[in-house]
Nucleic acid binder design. Structure first.
Length: 586
RNA sequence: GGGGGUGUAGUUCAGUUCGGUUAGAACGCCGGCCUGUCACGCCGGAGGUCGCGAGUUCGAGUCUCGUCGCUCCCGCCA
């Protein structure tokens, strides 16, 4: 018995032909006489009929069929009688009259039903992932993931990019995320690190003269998980020589456009809007703004800096800022809802959430009495107050104010139904600061990574005013998610050393950790830059899923465990011995 | 590391407020009946370490403490 068709390809035109179908039993309906079986494969479902009058022996055999049995059926495609077609089924106009049945494998009743509309707890799904993956949504997600990857490969190949693999076993470098370490057996006491990204290798490939590189690369970061973060994840990683920001942004846009047209059959307008980091922070409070709705933030520090409301005035005097968010028409939000939002912003360390309900002729607000008429007038103008509005204020250090109101803005956009969930709003955020100050470690840290080139016009500030040096980095943002990021790299040794120094590394340290890069830069490195897409996040958004686990075949739990295989797990003393490792007793 | 949610039949849940006889429902499963269903229908049945461990109590699914899993978020993630 050889399969002739998949379970969704049959239609009225096939009536009369003999076919062999193979698949899983989705459901069996036994009417005592005739038995119906919905046969499922990855393409769809076809109804198979076992009729005792047509073939008694096969009908008899079909009695033993149960859900998720794997069967092969030979039979004739027949048009269903008038009124018996099933419009919910792609193949609903026909059915297959079974003339031969092979039970290829029996199956225990599945732990949960193989259908989309039975919500099953995540741990049970992950433990029986092979069953979970049989459900239509997950099948669709994984297939979509493949099609996006395939479209990306085609596009990059057609545009002269070479797919080149880079090592998984590499060396741990300072900066960045916590590394996953792999002990070396032949070098006792020494460790490889799994790559957080192929960053340095792709730069070396540019230096080697390959000009255009790409890789759909697995990356590893030993940090805590989130709904959109896994410890191992996939990047579409690209790098190009002899280019500037706009070249890379352009090809990245074309890549995304290609994915949209080939996979989603959607036309995506380009070029995408570009926003500087500074502007993004000013208007949205976040470096990955969701531009599917308005509700922009307005800074009001200048208006309130001398006001009678000490909380605001003091914050401004201490270098903080005060910003407002006008929830247009939301005057009817209850006190409890407003309290909930105060709780919401406290998560981001904001110390309070002030608010004003704008009535026809007055402000209803705990803080109204502190402001002069002139100040009220100025505020009303700045944030475009109209009767019926509810305006929120946060006063704090700039980072906290922006973070709190930026997230509150997203929260309100969702809560108030302002978001068009069918929209795909892409934009670029550019000119990120090159570094930030790490309060805990008391030193400067690269915002992107330490190989990002500073903006040439800011070179002068590298030593005097490093926090105000802008970089040649850019992020691609889709619907409030960072889905890609890259930069023009440093390609000259002198500048790279200067950056390492600015980041607090001694020459001995950077020589030891990055000597190979420095000497490569010294060997004729072309100007180059690139970008890496968070492939999982991109697929997640395009699949309309809320969890990255739903677009990864075998994801890990929040504790970074695989419930299917029970990894991680203990290893034998002999294995540890070979690796010269000893587990510390707790 | 911290905060929130959650854990009861194979699965999804109710029961927990205010402790009390035999822990329920739906779906699934098993058996019987049924020749046109497609969430087939009807009848019958089996199925429980109430996550785990202590404690309080005459008595704990229910109260207390601890612990574990899953999950969302903060920190973290160049």
């Amino acid at each position: 018995m050889r399969r002739t068709h998949s379970c969704c390809r049959l239609g009225a035109d096939d009536a009369g032909s003999e076919v062999v179908l193979m698949g899983w039993v989705q459901r069996r309906r036994d009417h005592g006489g005739v038995i119906f079986v919905d046969l499922r494969d990855r393409e769809g479902i076809t109804q198979v009929v076992f009729n005792p009058e047509f073939n008694p022996a096969v009908h008899d055999k079909a009695q033993s069929i149960r859900n998720e049995f794997v069967i092969g059926v030979r039979g004739k495609v027949v048009r269903r009688l008038e009124g018996m077609a099933n419009p919910n089924l792609k193949t609903g106009e026909i059915e297959v009259m079974a003339d031969e049945l092979r039970i290829l494998n029996r199956a225990q009743p599945p732990v949960f039903q193989i259908e989309d509309n039975a919500e099953v707890s995540e741990s049970i799904r992950l433990k029986h992932r092979h069953l979970d993956l049989r459900r239509p949504t997950l099948q669709k997600n994984i297939i979509l993931r493949h099609r996006i990857a395939a479209a990306a490969r085609r596009f990059l190949d057609e545009n002269g990019f070479l797919e080149i693999e880079t090592p998984f076993l590499t060396r741990s470098t300072p900066e960045g995320a916590r590394d996953y370490l792999v002990p070396s057996r032949v070098n006792p006491g020494q460790f490889y690190a799994l790559p957080q990204s192929p960053q340095l290798f792709k730069q070396l490939l540019m230096i080697a003269g390959f000009d255009r590189y790409y890789q759909i690369a697995r990356c590893f970061r030993d940090e805590d998980l989130r709904a959109d973060r896994q410890p191992e994840f996939t990047q579409i990683d690209m790098e190009m020589s002899f280019v500037g920001e706009q070249d890379i942004m352009c090809i990245a846009e074309r890549l995304v456009q290609t994915i949209f047209s080939q996979v989603l059959e959607k036309n995506l307008p380009a070029p995408f809007p570009q926003l500087t980091y500074e502007e993004a922070m000013a208007r949205y409070g976040l470096d990955k703004p969701d531009t599917r709705f308005g509700l922009e933030l307005k800074e009001i520090s200048d208006i309130v800096k001398d006001s009678g409301f000490k909380v605001f005035a003091d914050v401004v005097k201490k270098g903080g800022i005060v910003k407002a968010l006008n929830a247009k028409g939301c005057i009817d939000l209850s006190r409890k809802e407003i309290d909930d939002m105060a709780g919401f912003v406290s998560v981001y360390k904001a110390r309070g959430l002030a608010w004003v309900k704008v009535r026809e002729d007055s402000w209803q607000s705990p803080i109204a009495k502190y402001f002069s008429e002139a100040e009220k007038q100025a505020l009303a103008e700045r944030v475009d107050m109209a009767p019926g509005d509810l305006v929120f204020f946060v006063a704090d250090q700039p980072r906290i104010t922006n973070d709190a109101l930026g997230h509150l803005r997203n929260f309100l956009g969702e809560k108030l139904g302002l978001i068009d969930h069918s929209a795909y709003n892409f934009l670029w955020v550019t000119h990120f600061p090159l570094m930030e100050y790490d309060e805990e470690e008391k030193r400067f840290q690269a915002l992107h990574h330490p190989f990002t080139a500073p903006l040439e016009e800011d070179y002068g500030k590298l030593e005097t005013d490093p926090l105000n040096v802008r970089s040649r980095a850019y992020d691609m943002v889709l619907n409030g998610s960072e889905i890609g990021g890259g930069s023009i790299r440093v390609h000259q040794r002198e500048l790279q050393e200067k950056l390492f120094s600015a980041l607090g590394m001694s020459p001995e340290t950077y020589e030891e950790k990055f000597g190979f890069l420095l000497s490569a830069l010294d060997s004729g490195a072309p100007p180059h830059g690139g970008i890496a897409f968070g492939f999982d996040r991109l697929v997640m958004i395009l699949a309309g899923q809320n969890s990255i686990r739903d677009i990864i075949a075998f994801p890990k739990t929040q504790k970074a465990a695989c419930l299917l295989t029970n990894a991680p797990a203990d290893v034998s003393p002999a294995q540890l011995e070979e690796l010269s490792l000893r587990i510390r007793k707790q």
